[in-house]
Computed example of a mutant assay.
Amino acid sequence: MIQRLQSIWLLLAAAAAFCSLQFSFFSGNMIGENQAKSFVSLTAQSNLLLLILSAGVGIASLIAIFLYKNRKMQLRIVLLTLLVSIINLVLFFTQTQKFVPGEGKYDLTAVFAIFIPVLLLFAIRGIRRDEKLVKSLDRLR
């Protein structure tokens, strides 16, 4: 389980998803209800949908690690997790539109959210390599 490279990619994707819950994606001024500007940091905890999707990506990545015996199910779960992480990333970028234009910046910790789909793609590549290896060994028998 742990010696497989995709397990490491999935563990890193889960860690990045859980880090995106705490660390900010975007910081800047936002106009509040009383028309006053306030400095706000956008994290996954600042929006309920972002919170649910980020936690779901992290939990699904951890679950997929332990499905190493059922590679087809593992591949399906990782593909679904990849789709949800891309939706999550799009939601992060749409949330930045609520800030005052020109008075905000992307934080360095935004790479956590951006790297999740990349890490999941690496895991998918590793799962497919394992599947090819098993099929080639079955042909030799």
Rank of each mutant, 00 (worst) to 15 (best):
V100K: 14
K69Q: 07
N88Q: 12
T81C: 11
A36D: 15
S41I: 04
L82F: 13
L50A: 07
L62M: 08
L75M: 06
L91S: 04
N47M: 14
R71A: 02
S61R: 02
T96H: 07
N88W: 13
A44K: 09
I31Y: 07
A55W: 12
P101I: 06
L79W: 05
Q95I: 02
V84F: 10
E103I: 06
L67P: 01
F92Y: 13
I63K: 06
G56F: 00
N88K: 06
S61Y: 05
Q35G: 05
L42F: 01
I87L: 09
S54Q: 14
L48A: 10
Q97S: 11
I87Q: 06
G102P: 00
S54F: 09
L79A: 08
V78D: 01
G104D: 02
L82E: 15
L42C: 05
T43Q: 10
I77V: 09
K72V: 09
A36S: 13
Q45H: 08
I52T: 10
K98F: 15
T96A: 12
G58S: 05
A55Y: 08
G58T: 08
L91P: 13
A44Q: 03
Q45K: 14
V78R: 00
S41M: 11
R71P: 03
I52R: 11
Q95V: 02
L51H: 11
E103D: 08
L79H: 05
I52G: 14
Q74R: 03
L82D: 06
V78G: 01
L75H: 01
K98G: 12
Q97R: 11
F99W: 09
L79K: 15
V100C: 11
V40Q: 14
K69E: 02
L42P: 01
T81K: 03
M73T: 13
G32Q: 02
F66E: 00
I87V: 12
V40F: 10
L83H: 04
N70Y: 08
P101R: 10
S38K: 12
L89K: 06
Q74A: 11
I86R: 04
M73N: 10
Q35C: 12
G104P: 02
L49M: 11
K105T: 07
A36T: 15
N70I: 02
G104W: 00
N88H: 14
S61V: 03
Q74P: 00
I63T: 10
L51G: 11
I63P: 04
I65C: 04
T96M: 15
G102C: 00
I52W: 15
N34K: 03
N47G: 09
R76K: 07
T43C: 15
R71G: 03
A64Q: 05
T94M: 14
V57R: 03
Q97T: 14
A44C: 15
K98E: 09
Y106A: 12
K98T: 08
K105S: 05
A44L: 08
L48C: 03
R76N: 12
N47W: 07
